[in-house]
């Protein structure tokens, strides 16, 4: 494996399977009454969050702590960054503190690539702008595998704002690596112009894709996209691309529903679909901690 996890494209199939298998082993630890492992004792993991994301930060924090690493949380708000410190100077500060891994969430696409030039430790991308969110894709794959088994040849449909979605980018790359067949469904305005070069199919018609899907992953739709004329109204979006009860009924009986959260209930997903037993949305959160443990463990070379 690479020293960093910045893009899902960094992972070979063997790497990805190693992470998923390691996560399976670690999941068994989570079922014990004492969840903590000593493997990363004495190692320092910095959570460097330039965007508010309590969910992702807590998930990484829990993962690092369960492996006994020392965790430093660095949030941009109220820190030197809000006083105009550059990413480079922040990186050099962390470097001086001896961070073994830096988990970075940043609003600018590519910020983790830049950070990797300036620190010696491993860089883990916890979401960069509209680029990627590889640990989300890993936890999604982990969640799918637990429900459906091997992902080879499985039909995964990803619905929503692909253009601005780091979750979609990482999922398309990782699922292609794992041999799943991905179909993206979105209004054409919310797909990149070059979508034809991606390793997946594209459709504008959700209803025709649903009956052939093993997994339907709904993406969050930002309401501000409406003001930029990506779609006419919330109601129209919901009607054409929302996963409501009628559409849910068109899915095969054993197909599952996913959402990376946070959800707009009633917009891209109906409440009863989100809460159905075939929804993995809550599992995804639990699996997030497990997969991030596996990533930190493998990057920092711990031993079980």
């Amino acid at each position: 494996m690479n020293r960093h996890l910045i893009s899902a494209a960094d992972l070979t199939k063997d790497d990805a399977l190693l992470i998923l298998d390691t996560a399976e082993e670690l999941a068994r630890v989570s079922e014990r009454s004492i969840k903590k492992l000593p493997t990363l004792r004495g190692r320092t993991v910095v959570n460097l969050f330039f965007e508010d994301s309590t969910r992702t930060r807590i998930s990484f924090e829990a993962a690092a702590k369960r492996l006994s690493a020392d965790v430093i949380n660095f949030s941009a708000k109220g820190s030197s960054v809000s006083k105009g410190e550059s990413l480079k100077d922040t990186a050099l500060t962390l470097e001086a503190m001896g961070a073994d891994a830096v988990v970075i969430r940043h609003g600018a696409s590519g910020a983790p690539h830049r950070l990797a030039n300036w620190v010696r430790g491993s860089v883990v991308n916890a979401g960069d702008g509209t680029h990627e969110h590889p640990t989300q894709a890993l936890l999604d794959a982990f969640s799918m595998r637990r429900r459906l088994g091997n992902l080879e040849g499985r039909k995964v449909t990803i619905v929503g704002d692909v253009l601005h979605s780091r979750v979609a980018r990482s999922n398309v790359l990782l699922l292609a690596t794992l041999g799943a067949d991905v179909t993206l469904v979105a209004p054409p305005t919310l797909l990149p112009v070059s979508i034809g070069t991606w390793p997946c199919e594209v459709s504008y018609d959700l209803d025709s894709v649903l009956p052939k899907s093993d997994v339907v992953m709904m993406l969050r739709v930002q309401k501000e996209r409406m003001n930029a004329a990506y779609f006419p109204s919330e109601r129209e979006y919901s009607r054409r691309y929302g996963l409501d009860r009628d559409r849910f009924a068109k899915m095969p009986d054993d197909a599952i529903v996913m959402h990376p959260g946070p959800m707009n209930r009633g917009m891209e997903i109906a409440a009863e679909v989100a809460d159905s037993p075939r929804s993995t949305i809550v599992e995804q959160v639990a699996n997030g901690v497990t997969i991030r443990m596996a990533v930190l463990y493998l990057l920092l070379g711990g031993e079980i």
Binding site: S109, G110, T130, E132, P192, V193, S194, I195, W198
Partner: peptide, 18 residues
Amino acid sequence: AQMNEGVISGRLGLSGWP
């Protein structure tokens, strides 16, 4: 806009300059 809108901008998640 951040870079040429095309294959690379789509992959990199940078807003396109068409």
